[in-house]
């Protein structure tokens, strides 16, 4: 118990928690925007892989880090456009298309990686985003290192929560987006473009997912390797449910998840933890996500028209 308390007191632990949460926050906001507009995006896992690859590859070719982020964003938006076109105007199964997009984006990234770098055995590294301490605030005890000594992309992740929240709940556009996820026929009756709104949400959301993927290569691991996303996209889908489709609550969920993941990494190294097979610790994040889903499932908040295709003129 004292070992646990000791870990929880460390500033480096909380810094790690926020770092682990950052890609999840970005991708969760992306998924949340899609689902609020009534579209489940199971392409998230593959879009994160594609974003991680194109972001990294851009920087590897000698362009700047922010150019990498921009390319990742555009990659995500392109896959979002494909997903959106198939499920919104054409009304195809969101489950099937989403899984297809995940397979397409993942294998496209792996294929491109192998074509571009046929000979390499160890993944080449790039110089990642450096930590960017906020003057003054970064010297606060514990919180300073956790919140104000992170890389630019972590700040961007927090900004994305604020932006998502403001747009969804404080602007006419957000009202229309939420309405299109609840009652598209009513939005149609208002003379607003249902298809355009849903497409826009999917494209923008997918862009955010890809930036979340790019966090992994541009801010965390410095290189691209296969299986690096490793189910993070699916965890984000669970986080959206956990957060009851609210940006702030989803942020809390992602931070809790990050803290838990940082904790299990440290417990693995603790004297008692070494007795336990490491796989048990690696399982915990997935089990925790399932438990969170079970606990939150009874709560309201599901957009009423989520996964319901809409055809013009239909009531």
């Amino acid at each position: 118990m004292s070992a646990l308390a000791e870990i929880l007191m460390q500033a480096s632990f909380w810094a790690a928690a926020v770092r682990i949460a950052s890609p999840l926050i970005l991708a969760t906001m992306g998924e949340l925007i899609c689902e609020r507009a009534g579209v489940l995006n199971l392409g998230i896992e593959g879009i994160m892989v594609a974003g991680a690859f194109t972001g990294w590859f851009t920087v590897y070719l000698g362009f700047g880090l922010w150019t990498g982020v921009l390319v990742a964003l555009l990659t995500g938006m392109a896959f979002g456009l494909l997903h959106g076109t198939l499920v919104v105007p054409f009304g195809l199964s969101q489950h099937v298309v989403g899984l297809g997009i995940t397979l397409l984006a993942t294998s496209a990234a792996y294929f491109a990686y192998r074509v571009a770098l046929p000979e390499v055995t160890s993944p080449p590294r790039i110089v990642p985003f450096p930590p960017l301490p906020v003057p003054g605030l970064s010297r606060l005890p514990v919180l300073g290192e956790a919140l104000f000594s992170q890389t630019a992309l972590t700040y961007l992740a927090f900004a994305s929560v604020l932006a998502t929240s403001v747009v969804l709940f404080r602007t006419p556009l957000g009202l229309a987006l939420r309405a299109v996820g609840e009652n598209p026929a009513a939005v149609e009756a208002q003379g607003l473009p249902v298809i355009g709104l849903r497409m826009g949400a999917v494209v923008a959301g997918s862009g955010l997912m890809a930036v979340g993927g790019a966090f992994l290569t541009l801010s965390a691991f410095s290189s691209f390797f296969f299986e690096m996303v490793n189910g993070r996209g699916w965890i984000c889908i669970a986080l959206v449910v956990f957060g009851a489709w609210m940006p702030g609550k989803a942020l809390v969920g992602a931070l809790l998840f990050g803290a838990f993941d940082a904790l299990q990494i440290r417990l693995q190294q603790a004297p008692l933890g070494r007795e336990v097979p490491y796989q048990v610790f690696l399982m915990l994040p997935y089990i925790l996500s399932i438990l969170a889903l079970v606990l939150m499932s009874r709560r309201a908040g599901v957009p009423a028209a989520l996964m319901v295709p809409w055809r013009k003129g239909e009531r």
Partner: peptide
């Protein structure tokens, strides 16, 4: 009422581990 898409996906990782 827990969505089975996410639970079955996440269980893949648990079972493999």
């Amino acid at each position: 009422g827990v969505d089975e898409v996410v639970t079955t996906l996440l269980l893949n990782f648990v079972v493999l581990l």
